[in-house]
Design a protein around this nucleic acid. Structure first.
Lengths: 261, 261
DNA sequence: AGCACCGCTTGACGAATATCAATCGATCTA
DNA sequence: TAGATCGATTGATATTCGTCAAGCGGTGCT
């Protein structure tokens, strides 16, 4: 209950809640609490049963899956984003782990309360269904991205997507470590370096986290972005208006990367 | 409206509808119609706006995505399955194409009616949200499968999953052409052949569509199936009881393949 | 029967990618 | 400041995978 009014407002503005009645919002946030975590904290392990809907208010969170000592990044989240909505709705165990990449502020809503409210309010239930649909479509994009494109193509499209999200500024800045980005794009860190090197012939210059797309048109001819794969949603600056850009990975706000990769 | 009572019952039994009141079921099926398609018919193209929720009652359909002359199979559906639920809920365009693999019988429900009913009935809305959650989780499994495993490992796990679904019978039978299976598993048909050849050292013998897993234990040590990736749901024979095994790809019934791959 | 077509398999080759190792640079610490 | 640590880069090498080509074995058609 120790949360600033401004935080509550940011949650209220989420597509998931912005059309809910005051009563519904009160019900679903009943018993919610805000918590701060340092960087590198594991919030949730694969296979854990999940009792809360998480809302990232500040910081950064990585969703990852693992198999046989190997790990891969499924999504990178920035505020304001919700995650593991699907597991909460089904009251099932988590299919991915969640860990903080930076010091983060996270609101935790009772899963029980969420499900109860859904059963009582058709409009809220509908909003949840819409959110889940957006998440689903985000994953469809991810799979297509992964299966249909090669490594350099995924990187090229990632850069073009970032350019749009960062308001067409020229030196875009990578929002995460390159090792994490590599995992998101489905390649080894070494290969990401080489992929960047390849793109230099298309005008791409890298200086640390700053990447300048010298000739976006040339890069675009290589990347061939496709609205059915890459969600080039409006830059964060412009008011997002109708909560319509598909949401991603149970998260409602911006995503860092078209999508997994 | 030309549909047999038995068909209606099968639709009624879907997790999506089985808990709905008679009125809700009547509303959502209002204006629905049954249609027959020959093999190889494209029901829906990527990018098309979608006005109907599809229910596969007989036959087989493939969901695929494409980019730059390339195509990949995202899911293989068998009766009784619904598909493109997410696009219908959002009233958005389709992210994948759908085509029949065999002569198929398909029920088409009005998307408008579905959304209207959702807004009126919280329980139905909740059922849709649960269905979407299952689909979402199916895709998470798919991405993990694709990013964390190699080709042979994906095939080995596919075979083990099929063994469970087909009631542990020994010569399992591949439910689709090998070229389609290869696309589902994310490899070329040539590589699928070689992958099968590799598995011969683990007891796998292939005779056309019949595959005998000579030593399932050995195969399992290679495949390392994981409940957080492979949905080893109960064999179709045993009554599925509570509609709980996660649904896949907007589909409610059996799926042919752990998952895309 | 003969023929064409199609799906599957196999081999050879090249491209893409992972892995291992070493190095460089920046940051943090003692 | 010196040392240690960590992320990023680069090179060498092995593995995986896709592509091209040919051959095999069915099915269906005439």
């Amino acid at each position: 209950m120790t949360m600033r009014a401004a935080d509550l407002d940011r949650v209220r503005a989420l597509p998931l809640f912005c059309r809910a009645t005051p009563e519904v919002f009160r019900d679903v946030t009943a018993g919610a609490f805000l918590q701060r975590f340092p960087a590198g904290t594991t919030l949730l392990m694969e296979g854990d049963t999940v009792d809360f809907l998480y809302v990232l208010l500040d910081g950064a969170v990585e969703l990852q899956g693992s198999w046989k000592e190997k790990e891969t990044t499924l999504a990178l989240l920035r505020p304001v984003s919700t995650f593991i909505l699907a597991a909460v709705v089904l009251d099932a165990d988590a299919l991915m782990s969640a860990r903080t990449l930076e010091r983060s502020e996270i609101l935790m809503l009772s899963g029980e309360a969420l499900r109860r409210t859904m059963r009582q309010d058709a409009d809220f239930s509908f909003a949840v269904a819409q959110e889940l649909s957006g998440c689903y479509r985000g994953l469809v994009r991810a799979v297509k991205n992964q299966k249909l494109r090669g490594g350099v193509e995924r990187l090229a499209n990632y850069l073009l997507t970032q350019r749009v999200r960062q308001g067409m500024r020229d030196p875009i800045v990578l929002p995460h470590e390159k090792r994490v980005l590599a995992s998101l794009l489905g390649m080894s860190p070494e290969n990401l370096s080489r992929a960047f090197a390849n793109l230099s012939s298309y005008g791409v210059v890298v200086h640390g986290a700053e990447v300048s797309l010298g000739r976006p048109d040339a890069l675009e001819r290589l990347a061939r972005p496709d609205p059915l794969i890459d969600n080039h949603m409006p830059p964060p600056s412009s008011v997002v208006g109708k909560a319509e850009s598909e949401r991603w990975a149970t998260q409602t706000g911006r995503t860092c990367g078209t999508v997994l990769g």
